[in-house]
Amino acid sequence: MQELEKKLNYTFRNQELLREALNHSSYANEHRSQGLGSNERLEFLGDSVLGFVTAEYLFDRHPDLPEGDLTRIRAALVCEQSLHEVAQKLNLGSYLKLGKGEEAGGGRHRASILADATEAVFAAVYLDGGITAASELIHRVLLDVEREEVVEERRRDYKTLLQEHIQRKAGQELTYCMVREEGPDHAKTFVTEVRLNGAAIGEGSGHSKKESEQMAAKSALEKLDNQ
């Protein structure tokens, strides 16, 4: 636990809060006789703490943005993918307590489990040290200008941009074809090729078919722009 506390740059007064934040429901169910709780309640609280801290950050940072834009950016910053990246940076998966079945199924690397645990840790820090401690942690691991730029990059719909680009000429047809899958089932990567009138013009990869299509479209746009 001390190793994780160093990564969090926070020392718990109540170590049980951190332990509970790392207990997946599968582990708690297997050890019900010991009265162990899962991290689900902390995850629920952490979601709200994260939402508030992020909303305050964006409200202060972007005084001219309307409510709709603030809501969109907040949703992107606190999405599963962002939280999964935080968990990976903290190596949170190595500290999780999982049931035997979840462990065997690759749960230690599953994005949804890691994202939920990240929210639970935020809640544990909030309960142990208050909103200031939680806010400092969230700012340190999640909220910065660079991550906002990454979020904005992800938000761009490259497929639409590519479609608009090729429609400048009549008779153009785009198709997306998944060409292969890579990696284990719990961390699979999809590789997609985008074709213009049957000829490959870009290739991209991602952890979902949709993401790989977007990356393929981005690749094609970059090539077309350089021609």
Rank of each mutant, 00 (worst) to 15 (best):
Y158L: 01
Q167I: 05
T132F: 15
H31E: 03
E103R: 12
Q2S: 09
R13M: 07
I113N: 07
V194H: 12
L42M: 14
G93I: 01
D64S: 05
V179T: 14
E193I: 10
E153L: 12
E80P: 02
Q167K: 13
V191E: 12
G105M: 13
H165P: 00
A21Q: 04
G206K: 03
H186P: 02
L17W: 14
L143W: 13
H207C: 04
E152S: 03
F122C: 15
E222D: 10
E164I: 06
E149M: 14
R72S: 08
L161A: 03
E56K: 12
L42F: 11
E80R: 15
H186N: 09
E43G: 00
I138W: 04
S208A: 01
S26N: 09
R74A: 07
E85D: 04
F190R: 02
K7C: 01
K209Y: 05
F190T: 00
S48V: 07
S112H: 12
H24Q: 07
E102A: 11
I166Y: 13
R61W: 06
K6G: 10
K169W: 10
R168S: 05
A115T: 04
F190H: 10
Q214P: 02
R156I: 11
S48F: 08
G183S: 08
Y27W: 15
T54F: 07
N91H: 09
L18G: 03
G204Q: 03
V86Q: 13
K210M: 10
D144G: 14
K6D: 11
K6R: 10
A87R: 09
L143C: 13
R147V: 01
E16N: 10
L90R: 01
S82I: 06
M215C: 01
N197G: 01
N39I: 04
S212T: 08
K97F: 15
E103Y: 10
L96D: 00
G183M: 09
G107T: 05
V179P: 01
L4M: 09
P184V: 04
G202N: 12
Q2T: 08
R155G: 00
R19Y: 15
S48H: 12
I73V: 12
E146N: 09
E40C: 02
G198I: 04
E103D: 13
A217I: 02
M1F: 11
R195D: 01
Q163D: 13
L142F: 11
V78F: 08
Q88W: 02
S212Y: 14
E193A: 05
V53Q: 03
G93R: 05
E146S: 06
K209I: 11
A133K: 09
S135Y: 13
T54C: 03
G68C: 07
K97I: 04
